[in-house]
Design a protein around this nucleic acid. Structure first.
Length: 471
RNA sequence: GCGGCCAUGGUGUAACGGUUAACACAGGAGAUUGUGGCUCUCCUGAUCCGGGUUCAAUUCCCGGUGGUCGCCCCA
């Protein structure tokens, strides 16, 4: 596969900065003795963690495919107003968590804090309304929010998202919830599905007015935080953690009572579909979501057990957003979707010691003595690779002993030993690492011999995440 | 953005304000010539950064940075 036709040109503005590069912020004093440092809230996902990450990503991909969602890759950078318009002006995400900056062409851009808006943008931009509806898309990738880091919360985090455009059918909502649940099931995580409806913007307005006036009577009893919420974002009162507020909530108006007939009907149908597939859910009249674009159904996946209600126990969520496409300039298009936080899911897996199915990284190890053996080894390597056998080595080491140590640590089943003598004889030694038994084999036959020996052991997979299995 | 707690080799820990900052694991080299899993020897390697107090700071104080927990909010 060739890369781009042209070699990458340095498109950068070659404006030479007169001074030191790093000096321009006040970075210089922060960073310690020149050692490179991770930006706060950012992290490296190390090789050891990739097994779990792959496990999660694979599960998502195969679920997406089996529900016939089409993959879409969306840019990480978008014009900042896309998010300003969609997420809601007053929301924290927009107000204080977005990475917004001016790009070299003096345009205000933002690192995406989520991708639903991008998906909607793509839907409009590529005229997907002309495709058979609904259009079902899924994506996966990093999102960015400049929030205060905490366990399970990073400034760069990964989400997978499923979005369905062009259908207002309640079955879509239900199916999305089902898919989300299936993903967790596949991974072995027990989540509870919280669900609620916030109706149309109109009935939400009406409800809000009612809610505000209800709480106004008790204003003096409200804790500071909740007084602020009452002003700024009254819906948030619903999931307040303050005991006093929780008490007051008992007699507070319920949003479900304020839904118009259509909204009510929609919601009832969603629930019926869920019942139909015997999918348990928790009706949570206090569930509200942080982004403005939601309408009707909203839902969240939360970690089922540890009732201790850990802070970051929401592993994902979503809902219907019928007004979003129109809001950013498309034709009115009903839509619904959800996103899952991969970081949190991976964390949940490791908290619960759920290990991904193990794939042997290497089946056999190649130990060599001397340059002649190395040369032969290089060729042998390719032959093994062609037959799908993964061969590991430690050509950086000379002593056979050291190489066997590595082989042992890798846990391979067989080690091939090739020394001067074998090279001359055209043979190679195969050593069973379990028993220590060795035999000398014609080097020409070694690939088929190894193939046969590996076959005998059903525990060894000849294809793990083999690229052939892809696509 | 606010508050609490924390910061020692790659990892996990230790060190009354006082020598060469200790231990385990991991890593490297070796224990007769070309054979792993046990054992043994040796080696590499750290006090987050910047100030201050002090004769003396890993230790005390302040600031920064980072982590963590709670709040805000969210995935």
């Amino acid at each position: 596969m060739p890369f781009r036709k042209n070699t990458p040109k340095p498109v950068q503005t070659p404006v030479k900065k007169p001074e030191t590069e790093e000096g321009d912020e006040d970075e210089s004093k922060k960073s310690s003795k020149g050692a490179p440092e991770l930006l706060r809230g950012f992290r490296d996902i190390m090789p050891e963690e990739q097994g779990r990450w792959n496990f999660v990503r694979d599960a998502m991909r195969s679920l997406a495919e089996s529900y016939t969602f089409d993959r879409i890759d969306l840019p990480i950078l978008e014009r900042s107003d896309l998010f300003l318009r969609t997420l809601g002006k007053g929301t924290d995400v927009v107000e204080k968590e977005m990475y917004v900056f001016t790009d070299p062409s003096n345009r205000s851009v933002a690192l995406r804090p989520e991708a639903t808006a991008s998906a909607a943008r793509a839907y409009i931009e590529h005229g997907m309304i002309e495709r058979p509806q609904p259009v079902k898309l899924w994506y996966e990738g990093p999102m960015f929010r400049h929030d205060r880091p905490q366990a399970g919360r990073f400034r760069q985090f990964y989400q997978v998202g499923f979005e369905v455009f062009g259908s207002s059918e309640p079955i879509i909502d239900a199916q999305l919830i089902l898919i989300g649940k299936k993903i967790f099931e596949t991974l072995g995580l027990d989540v509870s599905v919280q669900i609620n409806s916030i109706g149309t913007p109109e009935c939400r307005q009406a409800y809000l007015a009612e809610l505000v006036s209800y709480f106004r009577q008790f204003r003096s009893r409200l804790p500071e935080d909740d007084k602020r919420r009452l002003q700024k974002n009254p819906l948030r009162l619903l999931d307040s953690k303050e005991p006093e507020t929780i008490e007051l909530l008992k007699d507070a108006p319920q949003i479900l009572d304020w839904l118009d007939e259509k909204s009510k009907e929609h919601f009832m149908k969603v629930l019926e579909f869920l019942d139909e597939v015997e999918m348990p859910y928790v009706l949570n009249s206090h569930l509200v979501r942080g982004l403005d674009y939601y309408t009707h159904t909203v839902f969240e996946f939360t970690l089922a057990d540890d009732e201790g209600e850990k802070a970051q126990n929401a592993l994902g969520g979503g809902g219907r957003y019928d007004g979003l496409v129109e809001l950013i300039g498309g034709r009115p298009t009903p839509a619904c979707g959800f996103a899952l936080g991969i970081d949190r899911i991976v964390r949940a897996l490791s908290d619960k010691n759920i290990d991904p199915p193990q794939y042997k990284k290497a089946h056999v190890f190649f130990a060599q003595l001397g340059d002649a053996a190395r040369r032969v080894g290089l060729k042998l390597f390719e032959e093994f690779r062609k037959s799908g056998i993964i061969v590991s080595e430690a050509v950086g080491k000379n002593a056979l002993k050291a190489q066997l140590e590595v082989a042992n640590k890798l846990g391979v089943q067989f080690t091939l030993i090739l020394g001067q003598k074998e090279v001359l004889d055209g043979t190679i030694i195969i050593r069973d690492m379990e028993s220590g038994a060795q035999e000398t084999i014609d080097v020409k036959k070694i690939v088929s011999v190894v193939e046969r020996k590996l076959q005998k052991d059903p525990g060894v997979k000849t294809e793990g995440y083999s690229p052939v299995a892809d696509s």
